[in-house]
Design a protein around this nucleic acid. Sequence first.
DNA 1: TTACAAGCTCAAGTCAACTTGAGGTCAAGA
DNA 2: TCTTGACCTCAAGTTGACTTGAGCTTGTAA
Lengths: 145, 145
Amino acid sequence: MKHAKIMDIGDVVKRSGLPASTLRFYEDKGLIQSVGRNGLRRLFDADILERLALISLGRNAGFSLDEISRMLTPHGPRIDRELLAAKADELDRNIKMLMAMRDGLRHAAECPAPRHLECPTFQRLLHVAGKKGRHERRKPVGIAS
Amino acid sequence: MKHAKIMDIGDVVKRSGLPASTLRFYEDKGLIQSVGRNGLRRLFDADILERLALISLGRNAGFSLDEISRMLTPHGPRIDRELLAAKADELDRNIKMLMAMRDGLRHAAECPAPRHLECPTFQRLLHVAGKKGRHERRKPVGIAS
DNA sequence: TTACAAGCTCAAGTCAACTTGAGGTCAAGA
DNA sequence: TCTTGACCTCAAGTTGACTTGAGCTTGTAA
């Protein structure tokens, strides 16, 4: 029987970089679980780190914690391929949008014209931006700055 | 003298797609201004639409409303080129990250392996994701789904 | 002139993902 | 044994960008 190494919350904090409050919060939400207690203190199995990495990955990809908890069963990921594919497509659209933005910003940063509103490149960008998701609620794509 | 066309808030709602509450909110924040009142009712100059488009553009590019209000003077945009260039670089980093995510998701959606944790492609992705912005606060990149 | 849809104000509520604070417990090193 | 710092719980606070609701006003069509 191989019992993996067991850590207390402080170790997980050090090794994951996440604050203890977040770990407790994730446990409350059912995203992670501790393997037991030593007195009051939570004990975690070492594989928690992989799970936390998976959660970060999901967050970075734009999943909400709720979506992630639906995808990660207690014993590992159960992956909804359609959802993943849909997210990938969504990311792809976002990427295209962001690239247009980036180019627009670069243009604005370099273009010497004082009035960008008169610049055709800028106009085009405005036009593109204006067409996007008018009535839809904005969602984080979720990349740290 | 050319007095541009004047609209009431309902017209702006129809033409911008933004709800009236948002327009009032933006006015409170100083992001936009009405040109006067007809009784209680706000009157807007037609160029408000361009300004709103500019605001949407900024939001899409990941600027906060505060940043935007610093950049948009009452009489048009005053552009901080360094800030723009910095944002463009930030967007560029985010784009790269998102592309990695997208590829990872696509892989996960297509890879027949039941345990992605054992798949080297996925491992690599986890590794990449794990390195990102551990302690930094997450920010919306702000694209509607 | 009267009804009413469209405006208005101001305060409070919402949402996600956490963080903070107050007050309590307890394992382990000195 | 004593101290203390790491942990605990539970409730409330935070942030940004809006939205919602209650209660009031008014331009305008009939």
